[in-house]
Structure formats: structure tokens, C-alpha cells
Design a binder for these strands. Sequence first.
DNA 1: GCGTGGTTAAACCAAATGGTTAAATCACGT
DNA 2: ACGTGATTTAACCATTTGGTTTAACCACGC
Lengths: 202, 202
Amino acid sequence: MTTEESILKAARKVFQRKGLEGARMQEIADEAGINKALLHYYFRSKENLFEKIFSEAFEKMLPAVSGYLSEATNLRQFVVFFIEKYFELISEMPYAPQFILQEINRNPNLIANLTGKFGLPVELVKELIKREADAGLIVPIRPEHLMINIISMIIFPFAAKPIIMTVLFKNKQQAYDEFLNQRQAVIADFVLAAITIKKCDQ
Amino acid sequence: MTTEESILKAARKVFQRKGLEGARMQEIADEAGINKALLHYYFRSKENLFEKIFSEAFEKMLPAVSGYLSEATNLRQFVVFFIEKYFELISEMPYAPQFILQEINRNPNLIANLTGKFGLPVELVKELIKREADAGLIVPIRPEHLMINIISMIIFPFAAKPIIMTVLFKNKQQAYDEFLNQRQAVIADFVLAAITIKKCDQ
DNA sequence: GCGTGGTTAAACCAAATGGTTAAATCACGT
DNA sequence: ACGTGATTTAACCATTTGGTTTAACCACGC
């Protein structure tokens, strides 16, 4: 691992836990196993480094999903595939959502710089919903609600990990990890059950 | 409104948007329409003021719900009532969840001071689920997953407001507010549809 | 009128922090 | 051996920021 990589790794960790204002350059240097001078030798300023970490996280979290989804031919397929992909994504960067939300909350301008570059496949979902609702296969639901429902159920337990672990699992790390692992399947079942109209062909 | 109240109101606003480290005492004073000297005259230190705002938010968000829920006699009732109450709560303090999550993420010790004072009605839900699943009324589901699913779908759209408003609603405040208003009913329908087993008595 | 407590203004202090600098060292290929 | 870029050390600077202090002011009830 090059020095630059270890700096970025350290910056990711510190920024994502503490936020821009809470992070200390010294802490990032320590975490990277180098000193402050070298840190500035690589990345001139805190803002500079932060901007790299933030946009990296932002770009990874949003558009990654929408890309390979156009293939879905029915809603069930879409839902299962979407949940699978998004779960993979967030498992790799569990702190990113909380980090992004906090920083945008603190400085809404951050969103302006990145707007337009991304999107959710609302149009596709809208079409799938319309077609299958007309065919009596699923309950009609606004695509925005469906998407947000799914994303909420995936992201929130990662963002709220410390609280949930305390309130629901007596701080047992293992019990919580097991809980998280179950969720991909649980959410898929939950969503499909919620939107599917069951046939009564008895 | 007394000076103390206006300080607390200002502190709530600034702390919840910027976090402990991002907040400036001067900004809180300005927001309250007073000067820094008076701010310290009322609340000796930043930590002191922050602690008040944080534990206030924390205590309001968690246990408020679990109290008046023991009355529920069936799961449907519980779900509807829980969603209604939690929605009321969060509508009054939409920034609280994001704030709490961020601060706990930054300093996990914050959770230790408050542990044990609260809880979610998992036992009650577990009983209701068991009874009605045995009776073939609902799909069996771990109570923890059900609770987290519901809470996720309620909280997340508030926490992610700026992003969702941009990605899904072209920054139209009105469209987003309308979306949020729909969610109480949408979530209730969604959850009930997900857990209910429909009778085929044709 | 007078004291008391809320309030302001402005200057001030000490600590923390982002950032710089200078000199020395180290590792490496040439 | 030499040079170059990476790295360290340590001191240093300027700014920000939480917090204090002092004096004056104001409104109020007694």
C-alpha cells in the first residue's frame, strides 16, 4: 500500500466517523502512520482531502445502483436485484450513508456541486409498476415510495448501528452482525409480500 | 419567550445542523439574538449546553413511543398506532435522528450515559407475532426486523431530505412535503400488506 | 433613589488547530 | 558517489474559538 493510499484510507476512517469539523489532521496522520508535514506534502489542505473523500463516497453510493438495472423485465426481478446490489455496496462502505447525510446537512452546498450526475431508476420502476398493477399482479404504489422504502430499510440499520445494537441486542456485536446478514433476504421477502397480490386459485 | 428558552431553541437549531464540533457559540448567540457573554452567563460551557440539547433529543426520540403501546391487542392495531405516534414525534423534530446518529457515531460514549433508560416494545411485538402467526393470520417475522423496518421507513426520508429532494423531486420543496405527508398512510399499508396473510374465501 | 439581576460591548486570554518552514535523514536508482 | 524524492523532526505562525473579565447600561421592584 502506497503512502497516498494509506492516507486516503485513514482520512476515510476519520472523516466518516468524525465529520469534517470533528476530524483532526493530526489524527489522520497518526492513523496513516505518518506525520502532519507529510500529510500536507501529499494533500495540500484539509478541505482538499475532505473533498476527495466526500465526493468519492457520494459517487460510489448513488449512481452505482442505477446502472445495471435497465435489464429487469419485471418488478419482482428488479426488487430482488436492486436489494442485492445495494446491500453489497453498503456492506463495503457501511459508514458512508451517515457520513454523506451529515455533511450535506451541515453544508447543503455540497450537494450542488454534484447534482445532475446521478439518479434513481424511477422511470423504469414506474413503468413496471403501471404494467403489473394494470395486470392485477401487484398493488399500485408510487415508485418514489417503493424506492425510498427499500433504500430506507437497507441503509438505516447501518447508520443506526450503535443505537440498535444497544437497544435491541445488549451490545452483542455478534448478534447484530447476524441480524444484518439476515436483512437482505428479510427485506426482499417483506417488499415482495407488500406489493404482490396473491392469487386465490383454490 | 424567556432568554433561556430562546437560547435553547437556537442551540437546538445550530447543534442539530452542524453537530457539536461544527457548531459555534457565536452562531448560537447570534441565532438567539444575544451576545456571547450572556450565553455563557446562562450556560457555563459549550459541553454543558450540548449535553442538554443532546439528551433532550435522545430522550424524546426513544422512549416516548414504547410507553403508550401496551394497550394494543393485535398486531394490526399496534402497527398502525406505532406508525402514527412515531410519525407525529418525528414531524415535530425532523432533525433529531440524524443529529443523534451523528453524535453517537462521533463519540460512542454518549450512548453509555443514557443506556438502560429506554427500550422498544420487542417483547409485546414478539407475543403478538407469535399468536397471530400460529393462527395463520400473518407471516412470521422476527420482531426486531419488523420494528426496524418500520422505524427505517419513517426516519430515513427525514434524515435524507436534502438528497431525496434533489434526486427525486428536482429540489421542489412542495413536492417533497407532499411526499412526506403521504408516507404515514403508505407505510402503514405497506407494512400491513407485507405481514398479512390474505384469506381466500371465494 | 437605590439595589439587583439581566444585558451589552469590547477587550482580552489561552488553547487548539490548520498550515508552513527548514534542516536533516533515508531509500533508491543512476 | 551523487542526486532526487520521500520522510521525519521540531519549531514556528496565524487564526479560530471557547471562555473570561470589566465596566457600563437598563429595567424593575422596593
